[in-house]
């Protein structure tokens, strides 16, 4: 109880209160404490990545071991993980060997670029290949699926069921049309009207939501600082 509840709540209280006040204190100690805390956060994140990696590896290993449906995908996770790691490390090792044998400049050497002979990076190492020809297109593909999903979602749901919905529909069509270059060709005012809708009615609503969110954030922070909300410690 002491380790799992009292001490974490005490830490949350002290640190939370200090960093709430720190924002208003400009001394160098205050600034340094922020840097210090951020460094701690980075170190913790480093260790947490080990946990994350363990979770990923373990979950997929279980799937492969049990031969669950779709375990082939889990095998792919391993291939990707190990393959990228090997390619990344081999590039580093190669660079070190080149530097040791005098084939390459050490980039940390100031002279390397002061003599204007810094080579243009070539994107030919294995790791770069994976980045450029696997990660890049795969991510772009996922993102571009949005175009299809937006069209389908708009088609299924954007109906003028009520007067309010009809207003939204008209506004949406103006904004969508105003966001393409052809709109200016039809009428110069259309992009301006679209901008007006975005900057005024749309903004008013967003600000209202934002104020609510900010208040919610403040209340949540206070609940955590004062130990009222303890779900993040794993229940109450």
């Amino acid at each position: 109880m002491l380790l799992k509840r009292t001490i974490p709540v005490a830490i949350a209280f002290v640190v939370g209160l200090w960093f709430a006040i720190q924002y208003y204190v400009p001394t160098s100690f205050s600034e340094r404490s922020l840097t210090w805390a951020s460094n701690w956060a980075k170190i913790l994140l480093g260790f947490a990545y080990i946990l994350g990696l363990y979770s990923l590896v373990h979950v997929h290993w279980q799937k492969i071991r049990r031969g669950q449906p779709g375990y082939g995908y889990s095998l792919l996770v391993y291939v990707g993980l190990v393959g990228t790691l090997v390619l990344g490390l081999s590039g580093e090792v190669q660079t070190l060997v080149d530097i040791a044998t005098g084939k390459a400049h050490h980039f940390a050497d100031f002279q390397a670029y002061s003599t204007h002979d810094k080579p243009i990076p070539n994107f030919s190492s294995g790791f770069d290949w994976v980045y450029n020809y696997v990660f890049y297109p795969a991510s772009a593909t996922m993102f571009s699926i949005l175009a299809f999903f937006i069209a389908s979602a708009a088609y299924r749901t954007f109906r003028a069921r009520t007067i309010e919905a009809a207003f939204l529909l008209i506004a949406a069509i103006i904004v969508m049309f105003g966001r393409v270059p052809i709109a200016a060709a039809v009428h110069r005012a259309i992009p301006d009207v679209a901008d007006w809708i975005m900057a005024n009615p749309n903004m008013a609503v967003k600000r209202a939501i934002l104020i609510g969110i900010s208040l919610g954030t403040i209340a949540t922070s206070l609940r955590i600082i004062f130990g009222i909300e303890r779900a993040y410690l794993g229940g109450d």
């Binding site: 947490a48 946990l51 979770s55 993040y232």
Partner: peptide
Amino acid sequence: PIVLAVSQETVKE
């Protein structure tokens, strides 16, 4: 990963 660690603990509790 930190969200993972916290979530595991939360669900367990």
